[in-house]
């Protein structure tokens, strides 16, 4: 049976009702607040896509991403589709992924190592300085930085970044 998630449109988060929270938490879904587990919009979208949750919003029960997007448009205003594309790709490969920021994920790779992933989109120019700062920040924390570049067709190319001194 799918877990029930109650979505608050104001915060655009979903509270996992009793029953599913523990399993989700073990798999790096959601953020704990007290004894409650809250999912963010990307996690809700992914779990709806993969048929693992149903959502209650405005007293309605929703079971598809399409219906959820229609009913909660305001939550998708700041939403980058590319984030979901990358999130889904990593989750479908069996990786644990946590949403850290607007376009940054933390993930565990297949060897169990932690990586930071910066999501970039075709036609969305990014300051070169931002890439450098992302890489430096990640490496300062001894975490290997990754960039995931998503084309307009949804194709993802991943690069591992390393700051070097050519020698």
């Amino acid at each position: 049976m799918n877990a029930l998630v109650k979505v608050d449109k104001g915060s655009c988060t979903g509270l996992v009702e009793d029953g599913g929270a523990r399993e989700f938490e073990e798999k790096w879904f959601g953020e704990k607040s007290g004894d409650k587990l809250f999912l963010n919009i990307i996690e809700i979208s992914y779990l709806l896509l993969t048929g693992r949750i149903i959502v209650e919003t405005d007293g309605r029960i929703i079971s598809t991403l399409e219906d959820f997007m229609k009913s909660s448009l305001e939550c998708f205003k700041e939403y980058s589709w590319s984030n979901l594309v990358v999130y889904k790709d990593l989750r479908d490969r069996g990786r644990k992924v946590r949403v850290l920021g607007k376009n940054v994920f933390m993930m565990k790779d297949k060897h169990g190592d932690i990586r930071l992933v910066l999501i970039l989109e075709e036609k969305s120019p990014l300051g070169v300085k931002d890439i450098i700062e992302f890489a430096e920040k990640s490496m300062r924390n001894n975490i290997t930085p990754i960039v995931a570049i998503v084309s307009l067709q949804g194709e993802i190319t991943y690069y591992e970044l390393a700051r070097i001194e050519p020698s």
Binding site: D89, R95, V128, Y158, I164
Partner: peptide, 23 residues
């Protein structure tokens, strides 16, 4: 492999290596 070389206003250079990666 691709390296991007980023030059700041003081002509200091940051080299960043991009290695193709499979998750």
């Amino acid at each position: 492999k691709l390296i991007i070389a980023v030059v700041d206003s003081g002509s200091r250079i940051n080299y960043l290596l991009f290695g193709w990666w499979k998750p």
